[in-house]
Simulated assay, not measured.
Amino acid sequence: MKASRINRLFNAKSGKCFDVAIDHGFFCESSFLPGIENIEKSVKVLIDADPDAIQLTIGQAHHLQSVAGKSKPALVLRTDVANVYGSELPSVLYSRMIEEPALQAVRLDAACVVVNLFRIPGAPEVTDHCIQNILKLKPLCDFYGMPLMIEPLVFRPNHEAGGYMVDGNIKLIAPMVRQAVELGADIIKADPTDEVEEYHKVVEIAGSIPILVRGGGRASDEEILERTYRLMKQGVKGIVYGRNVVQHANPAGMTRALMAIVHDNAEPKDVINLI
């Protein structure tokens, strides 16, 4: 059953996946909301642009799944909520999972669920929360035949980065990716490394588990297209981008440009005109 759902995520022609994440409202952070204030409109725009999947929360998934027809993007369901993204962190940090996550995903006809695996300097308790979430979620996913996507996230110190900023150090990212494999991930959504050309090492350490690369914070069109093209050359199986799509002036155009790079091996110079 997992295989049939995974087949809905990955493009039949290329074997790759572009998942557009618009689950940011789950995290109660105002800087995450531009571009998705009207989530119903955002979902409609993305459906028309036709990515492989759209990542949504339990409270917003109906905007995708209530749309008629069988050709719409697959649903990736976010299963955990956290308060670790602000420029000033609260005194008590947490990462909590929704109740009966795999069963709720089945009811929503999701193709996959996603859960975080945080590494935050000075906050080992949040890593503990994540590990507990995954340990509970894995057997449920196996029971219901629901693919499990684990999202390792390596944070820079909050006082240094001024909020939610990832650390692109491969020596930190690679072990987290391997831990996600060991915990039973079917798919891994991982940070990009500072040096794109060494990303094949992350792919290698994941073995047979497909790697989808996160987009991170906003970047220029040229930067995000070039980075994506170079990452695909490193052997990744796709991308999961959010703000670089939904906060763009032309989300549909950016989606089509990235789809061409991911699935058709298009070069950035050949797709920049789509934006």
Rank of each mutant, 00 (worst) to 15 (best):
Arg5Thr: 09
Arg5Ser: 08
Arg8Asp: 11
Arg8Met: 13
Asn11Cys: 11
Ser14Asp: 07
Lys16Ser: 09
Lys16Thr: 12
Cys17Asp: 09
Phe18Gly: 05
Asp19Arg: 09
Val20Arg: 04
His24Thr: 08
Gly25Val: 02
Cys28Thr: 13
Gly35Arg: 03
Ile47Asp: 01
Asp48Ile: 11
Ala49Glu: 09
Leu56Arg: 04
Ala61Pro: 11
His63Lys: 07
Leu64Gln: 09
Gln65Gly: 03
Ser66Thr: 14
Ala68Lys: 14
Lys70Val: 14
Ser71Val: 10
Lys72Leu: 12
Pro73Leu: 08
Ala74Val: 11
Leu75His: 05
Ala82Pro: 09
Val84Gln: 10
Ser91Phe: 10
Ser91Trp: 07
Val92Ile: 15
Arg96Asp: 15
Met97Asp: 11
Met97Gly: 10
Ile98Pro: 08
Ile98Arg: 04
Leu103Ser: 12
Ala105Gly: 10
Val106Glu: 12
Ala110Ile: 08
Ala110Leu: 05
Val115Met: 12
Arg119Gly: 08
Ile120Trp: 02
Pro124Asn: 03
Val126Gln: 05
Ile131Tyr: 11
Ile131Gln: 08
Asn133Asp: 12
Leu135Ala: 15
Lys136Trp: 09
Lys138Pro: 10
Met146Asn: 06
Met146Ser: 07
Pro147Trp: 03
Leu148Gly: 08
Glu151Pro: 01
Arg156Trp: 07
Asn158Thr: 03
Asn158Gly: 01
His159Arg: 13
Tyr164Phe: 13
Met165Ser: 13
Met165Ile: 13
Val166His: 07
Val166Lys: 08
Lys171Ala: 11
Leu172Asn: 04
Ala174Asp: 00
Ala180Met: 01
Val181Met: 01
Lys189Gly: 00
Asp191Glu: 13
Glu195Ile: 14
Glu197Leu: 13
His200Gly: 03
Lys201Arg: 13
Lys201His: 03
Ala206Gly: 02
Ser208Asp: 15
Ile211Trp: 01
Leu212Gln: 12
Gly215Tyr: 05
Gly217Ser: 14
Ala219Ser: 13
Leu225Cys: 05
Glu226Gly: 09
Arg227Thr: 11
Arg227Tyr: 08
Gln234Phe: 00
Asn244Gln: 01
Val246Met: 10
Asn250Arg: 06
Pro251Lys: 02
Arg256Lys: 15
Arg256Val: 07
Arg256Asp: 02
Ala260Ile: 06
